[in-house]
Amino acid sequence: MIEIRFHGRGGQGAVVASKILAEALFREGNFVQSFPAFGAERRGAPVAAFTRANTYPIRIRTHIYAPDHVVVLDASLLDTTDVTAGLKPGGWVVINTDRSPENIPAMRGFKVATVDAGAVALKHGLGVPTAPIVNTAILGAFAKATGKVGLEALRKAILDQVPYNARANAQACVDAYQCTIIIADRI
């Protein structure tokens, strides 16, 4: 069983990201679950979403309290949210940021990767400079850092699940995969 938590802001697409990841993992033969943090949240507020995958049917129906990996769609959340809460030791923290690696706070005990998903998204015409749509790009970085999902499965999941600009989104995912920066791959 693998459990992943997404942090984002309302409207940024964290829930869709968790669904696309589930779809990709399903295409690779897994049983999956994806769900938002239950409730309702206004645009811009911190939100979370979750993906579970296993080679056996998933019977557990609880929230995810101890994820294996964490994906952060908005680096500004690092200042306000404990994104590593409950994260299993050795887990990956994949962050969308335009900060250079030395400006990322140290996360003792975890592996860290960054990607400027905003720049990648804008290059593909996804969103506007103040609000780029990064949820597909950052999945490429997740694939690159963790190796838990294949890029091809992700690409197909995006083409299947994204209703508008699916090709640009798929290409953004591939591009982000290429320009992911691995800051710390050892604990």
């Binding site: 999956v32 769900f35 239950f38 129906r61």
Partner: peptide, 12 residues
């Protein structure tokens, strides 16, 4: 069906 636990949870 349980709200959110099923309604909003995607699975196979």
């Amino acid at each position: 069906l349980d709200g959110f636990f099923l309604t909003h949870t995607a699975e196979v």
